[in-house]
Write a protein that binds this DNA or RNA. Structure first.
Lengths: 210, 210
DNA sequence: CGGCATCCGTGACGATACTG
DNA sequence: CAGTATCGTCACGGATGCCG
């Protein structure tokens, strides 16, 4: 079970850490921000987490109202874990953490795992305010999509978007980290050709012409 | 020493959690956001932290560039710990955590510790944009001050402000949590008399008249 | 095979005692 | 006052086994 060990402080940040402070919890939230995932998906995308800790965290998070467990309709009837509304409200927390940690994201160590959708979080800020629509992003490591201007704030997902995207971006991971660190401006990178833009909708035009 | 156990992920949020994810680390940052503190001050304001863990965290945080250790000039020559610029950049992280955790801050449990300056974090957002100056805040639990419009963003501190404040607020902890949760608007609370405003400067007038 | 539960070794944590 | 030393306990990581 979860932190039987509360900080016992009448402080909202301490209360948040009572729920979120355990190892792996916030990284599981980061995974689920990219959409519903099965237990095995979570286990393979979080190398190093042991099976019992993952199961324990998922139980705690469900009890704390962060996630729900749902059975997928057949075929492929499996359980998936997904965030509740309350869980999705953690997006600003992960954005703040990611922004602070961007300065630490220098070289890639040989032991570092990489997943494409981990770059969606820093890209959300860069793309905010450019208009509404779905942007499909392709990296060497994989692809993900970003839904801008959604009613519950922008959301994103792993893999190809379920609907036809309004614009397609192709770039490399290095440019992605530079964007997140603020060393590179999105529109500069498009002008330089470090980011390729495809698509004919207004969102694609806005990205190319601005 | 600190997380020898890295998550080993090429992701800025995971990198941040490598540094910040240990128990007590972010709460020590919260304490130091209120100004430099001695070891004993930290130990008494963080009930439950053991002496060796506190010492270990402070070493790790200094090594990771979050804090510095400085000897105070006599009299009272003691060591104080204070945040570096990099450490102060964690303010948005704690604000995001506090905002999310505000929903969990309901009744005060009998085991909960309270410190007045823990309420400074949520109040910063409420006071932002009302102008520049120093606001002294008095609660039953103690007092703190908030410096609005500072060059490095607003900062705050425990106890009375070192300079003469531009406005003085008196309120109770319940109103403070309601403000942080968004259930109560600052100017409404002033009109209702739940917050008393003293002072003659333009900031005090702005608080009373808006 | 996906979804855990069990067992075990190691290390982190919490409480107390002690020292410069 | 500012930590270090010691020790019991628990959480974590890794491997394996069970069960639908």
């Amino acid at each position: 079970m979860s932190p039987r060990r509360s900080y016992d402080q009448y402080c909202s940040a301490a209360r948040a850490l009572d729920v979120l402070g355990d190892r792996w919890t916030l990284l599981i939230v980061r995974e689920l921000l990219a959409g519903p995932r099965r237990y095995t998906d979570l286990h393979t995308d979080l190398p190093g987490v042991s099976t019992d800790v993952l199961a324990s965290r998922l139980k705690d998070m469900e009890r704390d109202g962060l996630t729900t467990r749902r059975r997928l309709p057949p075929p492929g009837a499996a359980y998936v874990y997904e965030l509740t509304g309350r869980g999705r409200e953690l997006l600003p927390v992960l954005q703040a953490l990611g922004e602070w940690g961007a300065a630490l994201l220098t070289e890639r160590r040989p032991t570092d795992a990489v997943r494409a959708h981990w770059f969606a979080l820093p890209l959300l800020r860069c793309l905010a305010g450019l208009g509404d629509g779905v942007v499909q992003v392709r990296l060497d490591e994989g692809e993900f999509y970003v839904r801008l201007g959604a009613q519950d704030g922008p959301v994103y997902g792993e893999g190809p978007a379920p609907e036809e995207p309004d614009a397609r971006l192709s770039l490399d991971a290095e440019s992605c980290t530079a964007l997140g660190r603020g060393d590179l401006m999105l529109l500069d990178a498009i002008r330089d050709g470090r980011i390729a833009v495809a698509g004919e909708g207004p969102l694609a035009k806005a990205l190319r012409e601005a």
